[in-house]
Amino acid sequence: MPLTSSSPEGGRAMWNYAPELPLRSAPFLHWPPRPVAIARHLGRTWLPLRSRFFMLAVAFGIWAWFMPSLERTKSLEFGWIFEIWLRNLVLVTLVAGGLHVWFYVVGRQGDSLRYDARPFGRNKRVFLFGNQVRENVVLTLTSAVVILTAFESLILWAYANGHARLISLDSSPVWFVVFLVVIPWWSILYFSAHHRLLHVGPAYRRIHSWHHRNTNVGPWSGLSMHPAEHLVLFSDVVLLFLLPSHPLHLYFMMMHHGLGAPLSHTGYDALLLGPRNGRRARFELGDFHHQIHHRFIECNYGGYESPLDEMLGAWHDGTPEGAAVLAHRSRKRAATS
């Protein structure tokens, strides 16, 4: 729905487009529980035209066709690590680059379903080369892909040498499926916690502020950050040193950040599929909750399925009234600190 409500400060429209407002967190975070609403929400998150299903499909494809054999990964050798790096480079380029071309180069949707219609930064000294998109591409294809590859290589080496316990669907069918289902929430909770900490003092000024140069985001913005933040972002896979797992779990976990970041930073609510003059299917992509975070910074650290923001009083529901409530809470905290 086009958004016509205006900001409390100025009176001009705050967004080009917004989903239904006010935003609400996932129903399983509310009391008393509503089983039907919870089941409906969980079912929707795994539908084929959702990012979660797409990431699982990509993870399966990597495991089935593009993973080096564990026999090769017993020793850390340039050959197989280079193959992983090349595959990750191509994959991130296809997803982030493909979405950027679709939305911002050929402009197949124009500004339809675009949250913030302002142009990306150009001729601004804050960005490398004075250009937001160029900086985003460079940081993504250098630091992000290298560090993503390093963590993947570490876990594959650990599988091959018995430092991480390897299971199969046949040997542990219940845990295999349960862990797949749990991984999205592990990724969300991990991201929420470390993201909030990156907003504290020197961590924000020296590291996370790189990512927040992107006040308006596109697909390349998702992984555009300081290399130290890439280290933190991708390190959630170390959980696999503690819990029995399968390479499919590794790749599904990796995709939540490696592809989840470009998918959630498109700046669009969905990619519309099908003829323009007919009913069009929606491939759900964007994250308006996080888009608000990029605009206002000190709010919405987690996600729709994280309890963090409501626990901290940092939930911004997308409305001018929500912004006013958040500002009031911030003033009260400042007055008592």
Rank of each mutant, 00 (worst) to 15 (best):
L49H: 03
L49D: 07
R87L: 12
L86Y: 02
L76Y: 11
L56T: 02
F60L: 15
V58H: 02
L70K: 01
R52Q: 15
L70Q: 04
L94R: 12
M55T: 02
L49S: 06
L70A: 03
E83Y: 04
W80K: 05
M67L: 00
K74E: 14
L76K: 04
F66H: 10
F54V: 02
T93Y: 14
G79S: 15
L86E: 05
W46Q: 13
G79M: 02
T93L: 15
L91I: 07
F53R: 04
L70E: 05
S75W: 05
M67S: 01
R87I: 12
G61Y: 03
A64F: 07
T73P: 03
I81H: 01
G61S: 08
L56V: 10
P48G: 02
F53V: 00
F60K: 10
M67W: 01
L86W: 13
M67H: 06
F66Q: 05
W65H: 09
S75Q: 10
F78A: 15
S51R: 09
L89E: 11
T73N: 04
P48Y: 05
W65M: 00
E83D: 15
R50I: 05
G79R: 10
V58T: 07
T93I: 05
T93F: 15
V92G: 12
A59T: 06
I84T: 14
V90S: 09
R87V: 12
N88L: 15
G79C: 02
E71D: 13
L89D: 09
L86M: 12
R72G: 09
L94A: 13
L86F: 14
E77M: 12
P68I: 04
F53D: 06
I84R: 00
W85S: 11
L76Q: 04
L89V: 11
T45G: 01
F53Q: 02
T93H: 11
T73Q: 03
M67F: 06
K74Q: 12
V58Q: 05
A64K: 14
L70H: 00
T45N: 07
L56A: 08
L94N: 13
F53T: 08
F60Y: 12
T73G: 00
A64M: 13
V58W: 03
E71A: 09
V92M: 12
F66D: 03
L47T: 00
R87G: 14
L76F: 00
I84P: 02
W80L: 01
W46K: 11
W80G: 06
L47F: 03
R44T: 09
W63R: 06
F54K: 08
K74G: 15
E71W: 04
V90G: 05
P68K: 05
L49M: 00
N88P: 12
K74L: 10
K74D: 07
